[in-house]
Design a protein around this nucleic acid. Structure first.
Lengths: 243, 243
DNA sequence: ACTTATTGTATCATTATGTTACAATAATAA
DNA sequence: TTATTATTGTAACATAATGATACAATAAGT
């Protein structure tokens, strides 16, 4: 990986990559009843950013996004979808990348490809928090989960990108039943409801939620989960993969 | 316009344009109870294609899409939205563009920028059929409406692009009330229902449709429309712009 | 055995949608 | 002028979906 960025850096014209096009990935996880996103902190710069990358000139754009996701989380077979292209001219700001390269002790030439204008394809992914292994890229100190309601200031327009991704997630939550991708294999109805409430940012009616979800016929009841709490044990459910 | 393409053609390295990025626009219209799209036929090649274009290096991508729409229809202030980025490597096929340039009597160099791989941002627009003035670009014979259920074979993956645009239109029809953009200022309930039926490809129940639409409180009843038919005259409605 | 918190579900209320019916009414024909 | 016809607007009822409340079942602690 370090190799990859060194290549992107010293390869001043970006040979082998599609010029001017990048990927930004909003990777959602769910933990402690909080919706989280994966962020990178860049070395010696105080800059935070979304995981992202560039597209090889013989690679599908969607495939490049999967590669980014794999590199940052170790996960494959994950829900991942485009949600918007960020292409305003006003986004153009070479300073953060210049700062990152300078902080690495590399002074890029003025016409370095990474300092040119980039259009970014926004992707959002829903991953099982417990399965992802956050992995920094070559030029970042850390790759970590940050709660959505407590985000740091991000590079460029990355905060807005996250907002737009969240909107997309909210409108597609029921419609495409994508929410399940944020949970593990097995979960209780309470956990599922809590996920929905967190994503949508509002309370749902317990009885109605349970009835609705069960009526979809996509859940399989497995066993009871003895939580150790002084109350009836909830059932565990599993998403019936056959659809 | 001719000037613009001559510039794109003779400017073999595409200076002034974002490299490798294009726009394809699926422009929907509604007429004679049919959903139509605007297509270009290219000179001396027998090729049909979606209207499209490139992005100036100081231009917003969305703005470039508006420019394409304006150039092909003469319309501004139109519903226009991104719906997908077509970025598979397998799309890459320089032959159609080479054929177009050759048919114009221009032999492009092997490294001509228009023969390189392009990623395409798909936009869909909903326009008032009666207001649009289909206008060919510099290298096409014609710009015309084609019924969706009777499309010619299109260049590259443009047929699939239209299919994806249609899916997007269908899922967003109620949700965002975008359907109204396909009608003129004033319309009858029957016309609106017919539009919905055509887009969704299924019959709707008249009484329920009317009740539902009216309950949204977004329509203003204006006057009766005397159609000349031997029956009660329907009311004309207008979309209340205030939302 | 009693208490507590939580779960699963039944019950009823309310709202939304599907279905049928019918009066109102333009244009035409008698 | 008066019937005829096709279509519209909407009422009325039936069915389905959702909201709200209630309550029995039940783990675990006391």
């Amino acid at each position: 990986m370090n190799k990859e960025f060194r290549n992107q850096e010293s390869n001043t014209q970006g040979d082998g990559y599609l010029p001017g096009l990048a990927i930004d990935a909003v990777i959602f996880g769910f933990h402690d009843n909080q919706l989280k996103v994966l962020l990178l902190a860049y070395k010696n710069t105080g800059l935070y950013a979304l995981p992202g990358g560039f597209i090889h000139d013989d690679e599908d754009v969607n495939q490049a996004a999967r590669r980014v996701l794999l590199d940052r989380t170790g996960l494959t077979n994950i829900f991942l979808d485009q949600f918007y292209v960020f292409g305003d001219y006003s986004r153009y700001d070479p300073e953060p990348l210049r700062a990152i390269m300078l902080a690495r002790g590399y002074t890029p030439p003025a016409d370095h490809w990474l300092l040119k204008r980039f259009i970014s394809v926004g992707y959002y992914a829903l991953v099982d928090f417990t399965k992802a292994i956050p992995t920094p890229d070559a030029i970042s100190d850390s790759c970590d989960w940050y709660s959505l309601d407590n985000l740091p200031q991000l590079m460029q327009d990355h905060n807005q990108i996250i907002q737009k991704a969240l909107q997309t997630l909210q409108t597609n939550l029921d419609q495409k039943l994508i929410g399940f991708n944020l949970l593990g294999e097995e979960f209780t109805m309470g956990e599922l409801q809590s996920l929905y409430e967190t994503v949508l940012g509002k309370k749902l009616i317990r009885a109605a939620f349970q009835r609705k979800i069960l009526s979809l016929g996509i859940l399989e009841r497995i066993a009871k989960k003895f939580t150790g709490g002084a109350h009836k044990a909830p059932y565990l459910y599993r998403f019936t993969s056959v659809r």
